[in-house]
Design a protein around this nucleic acid. Structure first.
Lengths: 144, 144
DNA sequence: GCAATAAAGGATAAAAAGGTCTTAATATAT
DNA sequence: ATATATTAAGACCTTTTTATCCTTTATTGC
């Protein structure tokens, strides 16, 4: 459904959110360890998220990544996916056709439309506050 | 959502179904042309579908690929996807975790469960007869 | 200012997915 | 039997994705 990069990006964002809630910055090293991702690759992804203003970064000692506390609830899953995977999940045809539309539909167009819509709805209606709650109370996990 | 190979596989199957309905075999060359896919790559995919008994093949002059007429309606999308992409869409975690389950869920586990279920339902309830109907009456398309 | 710490950026490498080519095997018609 | 049409199979190449490494830049505490 998502690229590996996007999966790491979402996991990292949720972790950073959970720490930012406690006013704590997270270093690359810590993030990679906590979400079980390759460190250098994760660095690239965090750069991308940072460039897209989804997270912010601070260099130097006690630096790291964070999300402004009052903004955590404003970050929707859709923004992260869009920043990393682009809009293919929004507009792509289920069978890979370039010109698939209501007027010129592929054979599974209508079946897929319903699914795509529920994916979009989910991505648009889920934010980092709710996703990081479960982490804090230990009911959800980001590793393995 | 699906790999390119799987997209070609579904498109090819739908085309073959539409021809088999008219008792016509389809050659690799024709299939590739009709669904707009690379010929040699399509050959590999058809081999896979053939090995999985989703389509059958006949060598030699007037040979080609076909689906026994009375079996067309028995072939579900899920079988094609399973043969080519495996069961990742059935059991994979949305965030790529290996040990994601009801008991040890990732933060988006519940949101994804609903989506996964609707995908599975769609794949299980759609067969090649319905998908090839639209092709015949010109209301759906497999190319571009 | 200097040393230490941390992210940014660029070059490179490894793995997977996508795709091609050549040869073999098999069936048909003459 | 032979020539021809067609799929099967395996080796190979290309592109994209995933992942690593090294150097540069920015920030902090002393």
């Amino acid at each position: 459904m998502f690229s590996k990069a996007c999966e790491y990006g979402i996991r990292a964002s949720i972790y950073i959110a959970s720490q930012s809630h406690k006013e704590k910055r997270s270093s690359l090293k810590t993030i990679a360890k906590q979400i079980g991702s390759p460190e250098a690759f994760t660095a690239k992804i965090l750069q991308q998220l940072s460039k897209n203003n989804i997270i912010s970064s601070v260099k130097g000692p006690n630096g790291g990544f964070e999300i402004e506390k009052k903004l955590i609830g404003k970050v929707k899953l859709s923004q992260i996916v869009l920043a990393i995977d682009g809009d293919s999940i929004y507009k792509g045809c289920g069978l890979g056709l370039k010109e698939c539309s209501e007027k010129v539909p592929c054979p599974v167009h209508h079946q897929f439309k319903a699914i795509r819509n529920s994916i979009i709805h989910m991505l648009e209606s889920t934010n980092l506050t709710e996703l990081s709650l479960g982490l804090k109370d230990g009911s959800t996990f980001l590793k393995l």
